[in-house]
């Protein structure tokens, strides 16, 4: 397949025909898998999962230098790493179509039936179409699409519209949403920090020290204390550093051990299909 695509130049129509045929074949295979009865599908999924996981496990545990020339990194399985990874990327990209289909389908229904808040759905559809068209044009047509001047204004290119959509639309909206956190943290901390017990008092005291240690205000407030010697510890930035390094980090390590073991255990159960049917039907 790789040879086929490499032998056809990108500009040749046959390249796109081959591309479409490959996508169609992929969809066909997925449809075929979907049509399989459960008793056949289940062992097939288990086998594919096992083989996929086996490659990564074997590649990790087989010592470096096995089956490869001296000086080459990795073992005989390592050169296939990219190819195996590409398979998962390709399979994953099929689902993008599914996601877009689900998203557009739902909002088309809401907009066409004028359900509650249908204006938002319409806005989503317009934004989706505009962003798709102008991103594709920007990628493949550069600045070649010129929109003629209207009512005395100078003409603009597709790239100009893309910049407006990206910087003025997407980037600004994204930043605005992130900025909301600043407001929400105020209301959340105002509501949540109540001194109800000794533990809550300790929590609040350490939170205030760490907060002040992380900003210039803290350094300014205790800036009069010496920077060396026993009193230096009481500068906010040093107390904050102590809490983060000596109290927070060990607790974090302990939680991380637990989480990492959870990931290891779940991975093993999935790889070896020990969780028979947990996601799709009853065990």
């Amino acid at each position: 397949m790789r040879t086929l695509f490499h032998s056809i130049p990108h500009t040749h129509p046959l390249y796109y025909v081959a591309l479409l045929a490959t996508v169609a074949a992929g969809i066909g295979i997925l449809a075929l898998l979907q049509a399989l009865p459960t008793r056949l599908r289940r062992p097939l999924i288990a086998l594919v999962t096992f083989l996929g996981g086996l490659y990564y496990a074997a590649e990790f545990f087989i010592p470096t230098g096995w089956g490869v020339h001296k000086g080459v990194d990795g073992n005989f399985l390592s050169p296939y790493f990219d190819k195996v990874a590409n398979i998962s990327s390709v399979l994953g990209s099929f689902s993008i179509g599914l996601g877009v289909f689900s998203l557009i389908g739902m909002h088309l229904r809401i907009a066409s039936r004028r359900r509650e808040s249908w204006g938002f759905s319409l806005m989503l559809l317009i934004s989706f179409v505009a962003m798709t068209i102008f991103t594709l044009l920007n990628e493949y047509a550069g600045k070649s699409v010129v929109i003629p001047s209207v009512a005395g204004h100078s003409s603009i290119t597709n790239h100009d519209i893309y910049v407006v959509l990206f910087n003025g639309g997407l980037a600004s909206l994204d930043s605005a949403m992130f900025a909301l956190i600043g407001f929400f943290i105020i209301s959340a901390s105002y509501r949540a920090f109540r001194i109800r017990s000794v533990e809550a008092t300790l929590l609040m005291a350490s939170a205030i020290i760490v907060m002040l240690g992380q900003v210039t205000l803290g350094s300014w407030l205790t800036g009069g204390l010496p920077s060396h010697g026993p009193l230096a510890f009481f500068r906010f930035e040093n107390m904050s550093e102590y809490i983060l390094v000596h109290l927070n980090a060990p607790a974090q390590r302990a939680v991380t051990f637990g989480l990492a073991l959870g990931v290891l255990a779940t991975s093993l159960r999935l790889w070896l299909s020990l969780e028979r049917g947990l996601y799709f039907d009853q065990e």
Partner: peptide, 18 residues
Amino acid sequence: DPQLVGVGEEVIRDAYTS
């Protein structure tokens, strides 16, 4: 994540069915 649409649908459908 679009990949979760299918799996999620199966999980919730299965919950209602069972």
